[in-house]
Design a protein around this nucleic acid. Structure first.
Lengths: 409, 409
DNA sequence: AGTAGTTGTACTAACATTTGAAATTACTTC
DNA sequence: GAAGTAATTTCAAATGTTAGTACAACTACT
């Protein structure tokens, strides 16, 4: 069992450093005084910690402004150029590599199409490494300035030294992607399911801002969910939590592409809706066909059916997790939400218990599909904020052996 | 968002005290040396903390035993008689009040039948207070020796100063049970859903021992679940998480007593199974009818159907939570499990995704229905271990104003 | 028996870190 | 230019941890 905390001493310092840094990062700009109030630490300690942080180059003073009769406050912020972070979105049809600064401003991007018949780990790893090199040279940055690389993958990422990836869509079963990448770069690598990274992006910068307990749903061709409890992503034993799409909603109902029957995905996934409307997408792009279909009155019944099922699916999440907010995301989820939000809410109300339903709001995601990479990059930032490694070597090539694939439990 | 920890100083001491106490409590008996190794603290600190704890009367030395060539170790343990804790199980048909010592040995018990037509808050509160008095006098204990009282209630307990209880079965909608009880006693009161308290009992003393991520299911007349993540009960926004029974498993399927349709409970609840077997229980006890029915070959199809649905329900939990262990509990769940465990496992395997299923084991609960009160009492112990309030006044009547209804977030 | 070896516990000095109060600083306003 | 005001920094406690050492209480060997 054993749940209580650390037995610590000067980790108090590290802890406070994290608290201050975390607070400052999300507030954007704060004075030492503000920080003292927000964190509850004494002014002296804040001053102290900030001193370190400034000495380390992580925090910078951004001019003293404002004053109504007293010493003006010196505003502080995390230096966006302290380092870069890389976010990678590995999708079924493409690999996207993005470079951000610490403020999460995109600095460079590189995309590779992924041949649906070539999902070999080596190919993907190659794309990622090539992309890394490309974005770095585009931004004129050096690998030593990168704090880490986060991967959003379509499957389960088992945390551990080798970052085992299980991705059914790719036929990957325990591919040590972390180990593969480490052969080409010494940047620390983090990975997580793409749905979870998107969820974290929404949590940090999108519709989930400020919420403690929320469920982020993600409907595209399939359906998944990311559960956030107390501001932290729920992972389960092997980081496999959130397989909402294959939750049974109609016992022995429609066949699903997972081989099972009656999965939610078989009712609310884009593929399922298109099939339900009798649409065969031949060579067309699934997304545009879907969007077009939304305007087609003849397809209405198919959407209504999907909305009903989606309501039940959301209701199940609400009953089980008692979230304060439920977010509809994923490209198909966003389209459905934009068109049918009221109906979806009504359907959820019908299927959920009144009490938890009344405590939850159902909202649209605010970030697009590119949030996979953004969220993946936040994994790096999260790690940085939480255990901001002493001093980063300003030196060039001499990359010290950095611990890769940190435990994210 | 904001997730990082406290900004602290001498709370380190408190923290270490908790770590030591917690470790010692669950290990039963340990020497100072063992504690140092287990907790990772230095021997000096352990010695120090234990000194305090002994001075406070919380820990006692239990003779020096054992030795294979060295100074014999002095064994320590939490003094079971340091204080009492009270556990209350509020069920639909009875209220049970139990008195335990800190080692969770039952010292006294008192039961009240609850007239199904009289569920008024005042009646229940009266029973609890009477029960408290009864068990205290039976054990010859004084109220001042009681560390707290934990309540397991059939509904949602919203943590807060007044401990609002929402219990549909009782027609309670936001009853301030904590406030009611505080009028009759000054003992701190904790409360939680009965399913959750049972889950915690299994976690501490039963089939969940040692697991970090588990889901405890509870099937009786209805069905509920308690989710434990990282050793901590998952609560959601308003402690309402875990309403598994009203999760939709067959869209617009069988009507459920909640007013909805297709709820899991309408397929696996005892009532539903009995109805499915065409059994009307007249005046008989539901439990004994159910047990008898298990032996009836004619009722086999009804059970098989229930097992199938239960498998699907468990599969949904496994997909969503990725637990390492799933526990079948509740009186009906236990009976079903004893008879059909293999079939239930097979059904779950059929409906769950292979990866999460392979990481989860499905097991029988080890504690009986009386665990509601036991688990409720653990709420008190948990609080005691985590923030073991400085010194407890040994004095008699003069009960200091103790904070009641502590936040359990 | 006596002595050496081993293991658990207590004690002391060194060090790290927070805090509250006082001092300092850097502005505004009169 | 003096006074006022609010943000920072400085400084001396207070507190708690750790490492290392001393001490205690046994066993086992000679």
């Amino acid at each position: 069992m054993s749940r209580p905390q650390r037995g610590t001493l000067r980790d108090v310092r590290k802890g406070n450093r994290s608290v201050v840094l975390w607070t400052l990062y999300f507030a954007n700009e704060l004075s030492r005084h503000d920080l003292a109030q927000t964190t509850g630490l004494s002014a002296a300690t804040v001053s102290n910690v900030i001193g370190d942080l400034i000495a380390d180059g992580i925090v910078v003073e951004t001019g003293s402004v404002d004053s109504d009769g007293g010493r003006p406050r010196i505003m502080l912020r995390v230096d966006p150029s302290y380092g870069y972070v890389v976010g990678v979105g590995v999708g079924e049809t493409r690999v996207r590599v993005e470079l951000y600064d610490l403020a999460m401003k995109e600095r460079a991007r590189k995309e590779f199409a992924l041949d649906p018949s070539h999902h070999e780990p080596a190919v993907v790893a190659r794309h990622i490494l090539d992309g890394l090199e490309a974005v770095l040279s585009e931004a004129g940055a050096d690998e030593s300035e990168v704090l880490g690389m986060g991967l959003g993958v379509p499957g389960v990422a088992e945390q551990g030294p080798d970052l085992l990836i299980h991705a059914r869509a790719f036929g990957w079963d325990g591919v040590p992607l972390g180990a593969l990448l480490r052969e080409g770069t010494s940047i620390p690598v983090f990975a997580d399911n793409g749905v979870k990274t998107t969820g974290q992006a929404e949590l940090w910068f999108g519709a989930g801002k400020g919420a403690q307990h929320l469920v982020m749903t993600f409907i595209g061709t399939g359906a998944g969910a990311s559960i956030i409890n107390g501001g932290v992503t729920y992972r389960g034993t092997a980081n496999g939590a959130g397989e909402w799409g294959h939750t049974k909603i109609v016992l022995d109902g429609r066949p699903c592409r997972c081989g099972g029957q009656g999965c939610l995905e078989a009712y609310v996934g884009a593929e399922a809706i298109l099939a339900g409307a009798g649409r065969d997408l031949g060579d067309d792009d699934e997304e545009s066909v879907f969007a077009a279909l939304l305007a087609d009155p003849l397809a209405r019944p198919a959407f209504e059916e999907a909305v009903r099922c989606l309501g039940a699916g959301l209701a199940n999440l609400i009953n089980l997790f008692n979230p304060e907010r439920v977010i509809l995301g994923g490209w198909a989820g966003s389209l459905l939400g934009r068109e049918f939000l009221a109906e979806i809410r009504a359907a959820a109300a019908r299927y959920a218990l009144p009490l938890p339903f009344s405590q939850a709001s159902i909202e649209l995601g605010r970030l697009g599909p590119e949030a996979v990479a953004l969220g993946a990059a936040t994994l790096v930032v999260e790690d940085f904020l939480l255990r901001s490694h002493a001093v980063r070597p300003a030196g060039r090539g001499e990359t010290p052996a950095r611990a890769a694939g940190p435990a994210h439990s």
